[in-house]
Design a protein around this nucleic acid. Sequence first.
DNA 1: GTCTATACTCTGATAGAC
DNA 2: GTCTATCAGAGTATAGAC
Lengths: 201, 201
Amino acid sequence: MTIAGENTEKQILIAARDVFIAKGYEGARMQEIADQAGINKALLHYYFRSKENLFDAVFSEVATHLFPAMKQLLEADLGLTEKITFFVKIYLQALHENPYIPAFVINTLNSNPERFLKYIKKSGINPKGLQQQIEAEAARGLIRKVKAEHLLVNIIAMCLFPFIARPIVQNIFDMKDEEYLLYLQDRQAEIIDFVLKSIAV
Amino acid sequence: MTIAGENTEKQILIAARDVFIAKGYEGARMQEIADQAGINKALLHYYFRSKENLFDAVFSEVATHLFPAMKQLLEADLGLTEKITFFVKIYLQALHENPYIPAFVINTLNSNPERFLKYIKKSGINPKGLQQQIEAEAARGLIRKVKAEHLLVNIIAMCLFPFIARPIVQNIFDMKDEEYLLYLQDRQAEIIDFVLKSIAV
DNA sequence: GTCTATACTCTGATAGAC
DNA sequence: GTCTATCAGAGTATAGAC
């Protein structure tokens, strides 16, 4: 593959990512992707045989960003308090840099679960270690006993929700765009505080 | 309109609701809606001039279910603890009865925000009263001081997330369908506990 | 109100020249 | 590798009979 070719492929993937994220699989148009990549439709099919293939290429790359560094962090050698603190900070930062990915993944996930299951296996997230850590720290009286399945979901839910449902939240609390960014920044400390207070003994 | 006509219209709306929720606006097919309603495509257009119109009819009805009884509850004459307890119970019950609505609304919301803004105004949810109540109870030393914008979002996020991201959650924790239902039941007490412990003084 | 048949448009995909 | 031109199918919408 020539250098020109690699460059074109990269341009296509960037354009495809933007369009698929904005419109979803069904709503996306090959023409729009071609336009945004500065090429024509035929070339899309030259590089990726079909819309389905192109989407898979985009999605497999994007889906890995949904749980950034989550696995490593869950298995890191840190106390639970530090782990939670780091996790929320890292996760919110990643979301700040990719604010539209969660809704895109959720959309794909629910409108076409089969497509999704191919990728989720890769995540490699295993809550067993977290559960053991929780039990250990609870036994030592550092935190109250809590189920990992609920704690993890609670934390992720609180981080993700303002990105998934932004128009609703922003509207209900009547915020301008700048105010919403401040609100999101605010949430970092709020979520950490909320969780740590909840699991305190 | 004749009785037969009203019945047909109702059948169309039921079928359209199912298909739009399962496939989203772009993914839905008028043919599939017609099939599921037991009629033909032409009749769809006789009752609702276009796909757009049909979707609006479905969505305006469905969107109101996203925040069931939330407004009344937020303004009810109850202590904060009771309010939170009731809210989580009522909300989770409503979600249990309509598990696919949140993902559908989120999907529509993000793939076509303009369409959504028409309906969100109706919700009438005003967090001001909640904020005042929080401040009042905090002043009396009943709870710690917390921002309504965060508390409300936290609670809703924790309730909604397992319905929005079910395939991910179910897969990560390796649950069968029955186990997931038990997990959802479990969450009612867990969320209430989680929140109340967090806002305790 | 309900149906069959069809018009018309959009869109993914391919053929073939350069 | 990249383009123009075009096909084939799908999908929304309408015409017109009953």
